[in-house]
Amino acid sequence: MQVTWGNVTVTFSNPEEAKKYAEKVARKLGGQVELHNGQFRIK
């Protein structure tokens, strides 16, 4: 499962870890987490 924002992509084998990481990054950037085609995207 991947977490992407800007031109950065981070890949996780565990979807739960990916979700936690995406939420943490979104909080830092003041963005929203979207699940899109099996990727968490931060907008």
Rank of each mutant, 00 (worst) to 15 (best):
I42L: 03
A18W: 02
K28P: 02
V8Q: 08
E17M: 13
A22P: 00
A18T: 02
A22Q: 00
T11V: 10
R27H: 12
H36V: 15
V25G: 00
E23R: 06
I42N: 01
E34G: 04
E16Q: 11
P15T: 14
Q2L: 09
P15N: 08
F12P: 00
Q39P: 01
L29S: 07
Q2N: 09
E16F: 11
L29R: 04
F12I: 04
R41I: 15
A26Y: 02
N14Q: 07
K20T: 12
T4H: 09
F12H: 02
N37L: 07
A26W: 02
K19F: 14
G30D: 05
H36C: 14
E23Q: 09
G30Y: 05
A26G: 04
K19Y: 14
T9W: 05
V10S: 03
Q32S: 14
V10H: 07
K28C: 15
G31K: 05
V8H: 13
V3Q: 00
K28A: 14
V10F: 09
V8L: 09
T11K: 09
F40K: 01
Y21Q: 03
V3W: 02
H36N: 08
Y21R: 01
R41N: 10
K28M: 14
E17Q: 12
T11C: 08
L35C: 07
G31D: 02
F12M: 04
S13L: 11
F40W: 15
E34S: 07
N14L: 07
V3C: 03
P15Q: 11
L35S: 06
V3H: 01
K28Y: 11
I42V: 09
T9D: 03
K19L: 14
M1A: 10
G31Y: 06
T4I: 14
R41A: 08
V33Y: 06
N7I: 08
V3N: 00
P15V: 14
S13V: 09
K43R: 13
A26P: 00
K43G: 07
N37V: 03
E16W: 11
E17D: 14
L29C: 09
N37T: 03
E23M: 09
L29G: 03
A26D: 00
G38P: 01
F40T: 01
T4M: 09
Y21H: 04
R27V: 10
P15G: 09
K43N: 12
V33M: 05
Y21W: 09
H36Q: 10
K28D: 11
N37W: 03
F12A: 01
Q39G: 15
R41Y: 15
V8G: 04
V8F: 12
E17V: 12
